[in-house]
Simulated scan of single mutants.
Amino acid sequence: MDCRCLRGHPGHVRDNPVAADPLGEALHFLHLVGRFYCRSELTAPWGMALHPMPDHLWFHVVTSGQCLLEVGQETMTLRTGELALVPHGEGHVLRSAAGVPAPRIDRLHHDYESDRYAILRHGGGGTPATLVCGAVRIEHPAARHLVDLLPRIVHLEPGEGLREDWMHSTLRLLAAEARELRPGGETVITRLSDLLVIQAIRTWIDNAPAAGTGWLGALRDPVVGRAITLIHQDPARPWTVAALADELAMSRSAFAARFTELVDEPAMRYVTRWRMYLAREWLREDGATVAALAARLGYQSEAAFSRAFKRVVGISPGAARRVAPAG
Score class of each variant (00 low, 15 high):
residue 217 G to I: 05
residue 7 R to V: 05
residue 312 V to P: 14
residue 283 L to V: 06
residue 288 A to Y: 14
residue 187 T to Y: 13
residue 30 L to Y: 03
residue 253 S to H: 10
residue 166 W to S: 01
residue 106 D to M: 08
residue 295 A to S: 10
residue 177 E to F: 10
residue 84 A to C: 11
residue 278 L to G: 05
residue 257 A to E: 11
residue 249 A to K: 15
residue 171 L to Y: 00
residue 53 M to C: 05
residue 14 R to D: 03
residue 89 G to L: 05
residue 233 Q to L: 15
residue 35 R to S: 12
residue 243 A to W: 11
residue 116 R to E: 04
residue 107 R to W: 13
residue 312 V to Y: 04
residue 283 L to D: 08
residue 117 Y to D: 14
residue 178 A to H: 06
residue 69 L to E: 00
residue 98 A to T: 08
residue 100 V to Y: 07
residue 267 A to W: 05
residue 72 G to V: 09
residue 21 D to E: 10
residue 115 D to L: 02
residue 94 L to A: 00
residue 39 R to T: 04
residue 56 H to K: 09
residue 254 A to M: 10
residue 21 D to F: 10
residue 6 L to D: 04
residue 9 H to V: 02
residue 258 R to W: 08
residue 229 T to Q: 10
residue 253 S to P: 10
residue 140 H to W: 05
residue 94 L to W: 11
residue 269 R to M: 07
residue 152 R to H: 09
residue 4 R to N: 12
residue 1 M to K: 15
residue 274 W to L: 03
residue 274 W to D: 01
residue 37 Y to C: 09
residue 241 V to R: 12
residue 106 D to P: 09
residue 287 G to S: 13
residue 323 V to L: 12
residue 127 T to G: 05
residue 243 A to P: 03
residue 257 A to V: 02
residue 118 A to R: 14
residue 137 R to S: 06
residue 75 T to R: 15
residue 138 I to H: 08
residue 169 S to R: 12
residue 241 V to D: 02
residue 211 A to Y: 04
residue 188 V to A: 15
residue 114 S to R: 14
residue 84 A to E: 02
residue 116 R to N: 15
residue 241 V to K: 14
residue 254 A to I: 06
residue 64 S to I: 02
residue 219 L to Q: 05
residue 301 S to K: 15
residue 230 L to F: 14
residue 19 A to H: 11
residue 103 P to R: 07
residue 50 L to H: 12
residue 279 A to C: 10
residue 276 M to K: 12
residue 259 F to N: 05
residue 121 R to F: 06
residue 162 L to V: 02
residue 312 V to I: 12
residue 95 R to V: 04
residue 165 D to C: 12
residue 243 A to M: 08
residue 22 P to W: 07
residue 254 A to D: 14
residue 294 A to H: 12
residue 34 G to K: 09
residue 255 F to T: 09
residue 199 Q to S: 02
residue 162 L to E: 00
residue 262 L to E: 01
residue 100 V to H: 11
residue 215 W to I: 03
residue 299 Y to W: 11
residue 146 L to H: 06
residue 136 V to C: 07
residue 194 D to A: 02
residue 180 E to Q: 14
residue 50 L to P: 01
residue 11 G to F: 12
residue 234 D to W: 14
residue 325 P to G: 06
residue 310 K to E: 10
residue 282 W to E: 04
residue 127 T to R: 13
residue 273 R to I: 07
residue 220 R to V: 04
residue 103 P to N: 09
residue 95 R to W: 07
residue 146 L to P: 04
residue 80 T to M: 09
residue 2 D to Y: 10
residue 90 E to N: 08
residue 250 M to L: 13
residue 23 L to R: 08
residue 243 A to Q: 14
residue 202 R to S: 02
residue 67 C to Y: 00
residue 183 P to L: 04
residue 267 A to E: 02
residue 104 R to W: 15
residue 7 R to D: 12
residue 220 R to E: 00
residue 71 V to Q: 08
residue 262 L to S: 03
residue 211 A to G: 08
residue 187 T to K: 13
residue 239 W to M: 08
residue 268 M to E: 03
residue 99 G to S: 07
residue 5 C to G: 13
residue 128 P to V: 01
residue 97 A to V: 03
residue 137 R to K: 14
residue 233 Q to D: 09
residue 245 A to I: 03
residue 160 E to C: 04
residue 284 R to N: 09
residue 162 L to Q: 02
residue 152 R to I: 03
residue 206 D to Q: 03
residue 316 S to F: 03
residue 287 G to T: 11
